[in-house]
Design a protein around this nucleic acid. Structure first.
Lengths: 234, 234, 234, 234
DNA sequence: CATGAATGAGCCTTCATTCAT
DNA sequence: TATGAATGAAGGCTCATTCAT
C-alpha cells in the first residue's frame, strides 16, 4: 500500500504481463502441449524457474493467457458501446470491434479452440465458467443494443437473449471458418455478408425498405470473390 | 478377391473400425494428449501392440477417427439429399440431418475442436486438406439446393458459394455454443431460430409473406427458454 | 532313415541353410540388434513364424550364422592343407585361403566383431568355446606345417603353438584394419607385407639368403601405395 | 572466464567425466544394447534425465566414451614418445605404453569391438573418422621412430607408413586374441613374442647379430606356457 | 527474487515370441 | 508345416516441476 510496495507490485504485474505475452505467442504458434515451459521462458528471456514464481502450473498460465485475452476483448467492446449513443451506430460498432479484435488475434486463434476443448472436458469448472461469464457479459452488451433497436421499431420483436447468444455463436463459427480457410478473404466481408443474411430477417418493413438494395447487393456479391471495381468479372 | 481373402480383409476392416470406435470414445472423453494408447487398447480389449498393426502412429489414429466421423456425416447428408425431390424439403432435410448428426455425436464434440486446432498448426497439410475437402463437398451439396430455391424465386439472388460456406460456418458455431452451454436446450431449437434469422433475409417477398408469421413467432420466442405453454415464465 | 525321411531331412536342411544365408546378409548389413526377425524372414521370403521352426531364438540363429561361416572357413583350410605336400607350398596356400576367405566375406566382417563382442561378455560359454575350438583346429593345422618347416631347417626353432596362435591373431588384426581402412588396398598385399615381416624373423640363414631380396623389396615398397611400374613414384 | 564461470564449467566437465566413467563401466560389462540408460544413471547415482543434460542421445554417450578412451591412449603415447631421446628406447616405450594401456583397460575391451562394428556400418561418418584420425596420429608417432631406426641403419629400409599401420593392426589383433583367450597369459609376453617375430625381419645384420640370441630364445619359448624354471613342463 | 541443474514419472513405440488356423 | 496377427515387456527420451544457490 506504501508507494514502495505499490511500485514493486506494479513491477511484478508488468512482468506477469510480459510472461503472459510470451505464453500467448508460444501457445498460439505451437499449441498447449507442444509448447514447453522452456520455450516460453526463452521467449520471455527469463529463467524457467521464474515462470513458477508467477504461475503455479502450466495450466494456470494457460488460463491466465485466456483471461488476458478475454479481458482485452471485453474492454474493447465496452469502450465501443459507451462511445456512441444511437443504437444503429452502436450495433455496427460492436460488429466492427469484434472483427478488428479477431483480425488482430488471428494468429492466436488456435488457442481459443484449445481452450474450448479444454473447457468442455475439464473437471475444473473454472474454465467453463470463465467462458460463460464472458459470453454473458457480451450478450448483455449486445442485448441492450438490440432492445433499443426493437424499441425504435427497427427490429422485429425478437427474444433478445437468444438473439445475442446466437450472434456470438455465429461470430465464432465465421471466425473459425475464416481461419480454416487460410484467411483467404477479408474477415470483414464475411461478417458483412452474414449481417445481410441475419439482419434482413430481423428488420421491420420500415428498415428493410431502406436498406434492402444494399443487402441485396451484398448477398448477390458474396464474400468469396474479390470485389473488383470492373463490372465484368470472370 | 477369393472368399478366403475377402473374409480376412473384412475381418481386418471390422477390427479397424472397432479400434477407431474405441479411439473415438477415449479421445472424446479425455482429449488427444490425455488419452494414452494404452487407454484405447484397454477400451478395445486388445493389446497395445495391436493398435500399431492398424495405425502407424497415434496421430494416424487420430486422423482415422476424424475421417471415420466425416465419412459418416457426408454419407448421411448424401442419403438425405437424394431421398427427396422438392428443394424446400431438401433444404429442411439437410438441416435436420446436421442437427441429428451433431446430437448423436455431442459427446465427441471436443474431438472436432482438437482436430481443427491441430489442422491450423500442423505442418502436415493432410489435416487441413481433409477439412477443406469435406467442407467443399458439403458446400456443393447445399449449393445445389440453394440454386434450385433461387430458380423457383423462393430465395433472392445470393452468391451460392458464399452462402453455403457461411451456413456451414454458422452451423459449427451454433453447435459449439450448444456444447459450451452444456447442452441446456435442444440443439434443434437453436437451429430453427437461426433458420428464421437467416432464411428471412433470403426470402423473396412471396415466400416471406407466407411464412412470416411462423418465423416472427420463432424469433420472438427464442430458443433459450423452454417453450412451455405457461404465459409467464421466469 | 528311410529315403522318404532322408529326403524330408534334406529339404529341411536346405531350408535351414537358406534361412542362415538370409540371416548372414541381414546381420552383416545392419548388425544383430538392428536386424529384425522380420527382415530376415522377408529376405528369405518366408513367414516370420517359420524362422522359429528352425531356430529357437534370435540368438540361436546368430550362433548358427557364425557356425556356418566358421565351418566354411575350416573346410576351405582343410582342403588346402590336404591338397599339397611340400610344407612351403602348404604354408603359402593356407595364407592364400585365409585371404580369399576374408575377401569373399568382407561384407560380413562386422558379424565377426559382434560375435567376438558377444562372446567376451556372454554368460553362455557356448560362444567362447566355439571360437576357441575353431582357433585350436586352425592352430593345429598351421602348427603341423610350421613343424615341418622347422624340421626341414627352414624355420628357426619356434614354439609352434605360440607362433600359430599369434599368426591367427595378427591375421584378424590385419583383416580388421583393412575393413576399417575402407578396403582401400588389396588385402593380399597387406598379408604379403606381414609375411615378409614375420617370415624374416623365423627364417634360418639358409632360407633368408634365398628370399631376402624379395622380402626386402616388399618391405621397402609397403602395401599402401599402388605398385605402379614407374620407378619414381610421388 | 571469470572464476565464477570457470568454476561452474569445471564442475560441469567433472560431472561429464563422471558420467562417461559410469558409461564405460556399464557398456564394457553389458554391451551397448544391453546397457540401459537407467543402468548408467544408477551407477553414476544420478537421475536418468541428468544423462540427457550432458549427452543428446545414448549413441552420443557411446561416442563420448570412445573419445575419452582414445584421448587417454593418445596422451599416454605422446608422453612416452617425448620422454625419451634414443629411438630404440622410444620404440620399446611405445610398445610398453600400448601394453600397459591395453592391460589397464582389459575389462573394457568389448567396447572397442562394438565401436568398430558400429563404425563399419554406421551412416554416421563421425565414427569411422574418429578411428582413422586416431590411427593416423599413432602411425605418425610410430613412423618417426621407425624412420630414426632406419637412419641409424638398425632397421632395413621399410615403407614406414605401411609398417606402422600394420603394427597397429597386429597390436589390435594380439590384444583381441588375448581377450578371447581369457587373458590366460601375460599380454606383455605375447607382445614380446610378436616383436621378436617382426623385429627380426626388419633388423639389419648388424643389429640381428647383437640380439639374435635373445629373440631366438623368445621364439623358442613362446608365450603360452608359463616361463617356469622347471625344465619339464606339461 | 531469479535461476537452471537435477529429477523421475510417464508415454510412445518397437519387436521377439507365441499360437490359432 | 507354414503363417502372420496378436501380444506386452521393455526402453529411450521428454519435460513439468523442484530447490539449492
Amino acid at each position: 500500500m506504501s508507494p514502495q510496495r505499490s511500485r514493486t507490485e506494479e513491477a511484478k504485474e508488468a512482468k506477469r504481463q510480459l510472461l503472459i505475452h510470451a505464453a500467448i505467442e508460444m501457445f498460439a504458434k505451437k499449441g498447449f502441449h507442444e509448447t514447453k515451459m522452456q520455450d516460453i521462458a526463452d521467449y520471455a528471456a527469463v529463467g524457467k524457474g521464474t515462470l513458477y514464481e508467477y504461475f503455479e502450473t502450466k495450466e494456470d498460465l494457460f488460463l491466465a493467457v485466456y483471461d488476458s485475452w478475454i479481458d482485452e476483448y471485453e474492454a474493447d467492446m465496452l469502450r465501443q458501446s459507451e462511445r456512441l449513443l444511437d443504437p444503429v451506430s452502436k450495433a455496427s460498432a460492436l460488429i466492427d470491434t469484434t472483427v478488428e479484435f479477431y483480425e488482430k488475434h488471428a494468429d492466436h486463434a488456435a488457442i481459443l479452440l484449445e481452450f474450448w476443448a479444454h473447457a468442455i472436458r475439464s473437471q475444473n469448472p473454472h474454465f467453463l465458467n470463465r467462458i460463460r461469464e464472458m459470453k454473458s457479459r457480451l450478450s448483455e452488451l449486445g442485448g441492450k443494443v438490440a432492445q433499443e433497436l426493437i424499441k425504435l421499431k427497427l427490429f422485429v420483436d425478437v427474444d433478445v437473449e437468444s438473439f445475442t447468444r446466437l450472434e456470438l455463436a455465429m461470430s465464432d463459427g465465421v471466425f473459425l471458418q475464416w481461419i480454416l480457410d487460410g484467411k483467404s478473404y477479408p474477415l470483414r466481408d464475411a461478417y458483412k455478408f452474414r449481417q445481410s443474411l441475419i439482419g434482413a430477417g430481423l428488420m421491420t418493413n420500415t428498415l428493410r425498405k431502406l436498406i434492402a438494395p444494399k443487402t441485396d447487393k451484398r448477398l448477390k456479391q458474396g464474400f468469396l470473390k474479390p470485389k473488383s471495381s470492373n463490372k465484368k468479372s470472370t
